Simulated assay, not measured.
Amino acid sequence: MHRGLKPLLAVAAAGLAAGCASPNQPQVTFYSHGDSVAVDAAQYCDPTGDQCSPPNQEAVGELRMANRDPLQISVPAEVSQAPWQVVFLYQGLDGKQLDGRSPVFTPNSRHAYTLQLPPDGARIEHVEVQQFSAVLTQGADGGVDFGIGGSWVLDVKQ
């Protein structure tokens, strides 16, 4: 797991500690340049955050991609029924590791997303699909944060 996403997964793990039972776990499919991989949830809770599976650090997909190829991501209805987004780490043209994120997609608005590198990017390294839960926590800035109820992780190989 990449260093830059540990805080994101730590937030998700805190939200998962609440429940014991395992809900049905959907898979997310990642596709690029003729190859695809279906990935199990690294962490998954039902939308209310009541029933959660234990974190699965072995559920990390791998996919080979050419440097600037787009990555297509397909999520099933179980994921798209709640707000979700894509967060990613990428290598910049200057060799530095950078991060980015998609917009947050509203419930039932879409089942797919194509991740294109930002103009300053050389290659995608790590991608995480995050499904938000109904669990709210107090944010550091005084507002509220939504918990991460599901997480699907992909490491990109060159």
Rank of each mutant, 00 (worst) to 15 (best):
A10W: 08
A10S: 14
V11W: 08
A12C: 00
A12K: 00
A12M: 01
G15Y: 11
L16E: 13
A17K: 12
A21V: 09
P23V: 09
P26A: 14
V28M: 08
T29N: 05
G34C: 07
S36T: 09
V37Y: 09
D40E: 14
C45F: 06
C45P: 05
D46S: 03
G49F: 03
Q51I: 04
P55W: 12
P55T: 13
N56C: 07
E58H: 03
A59E: 08
E62K: 12
L63R: 00
L63N: 02
A66F: 04
S74P: 05
S74H: 12
S74Q: 13
Q81G: 04
A82S: 14
W84E: 09
Q85T: 13
F88Y: 15
Y90G: 09
K96M: 11
Q97K: 13
D99L: 04
R101Y: 07
S102Y: 00
V104T: 15
V104N: 11
T106K: 13
A112D: 15
A112C: 10
Y113I: 01
Y113K: 01
Y113F: 04
Q116K: 03
L117S: 07
P119E: 12
H126G: 05
V127F: 01
V129H: 03
T137Q: 10
G139M: 09
G142S: 04
G143A: 13
V144G: 06
F146L: 11
F146K: 11
I148E: 00
I148V: 02
G149M: 02
S151K: 02
W152Y: 15
V153T: 11
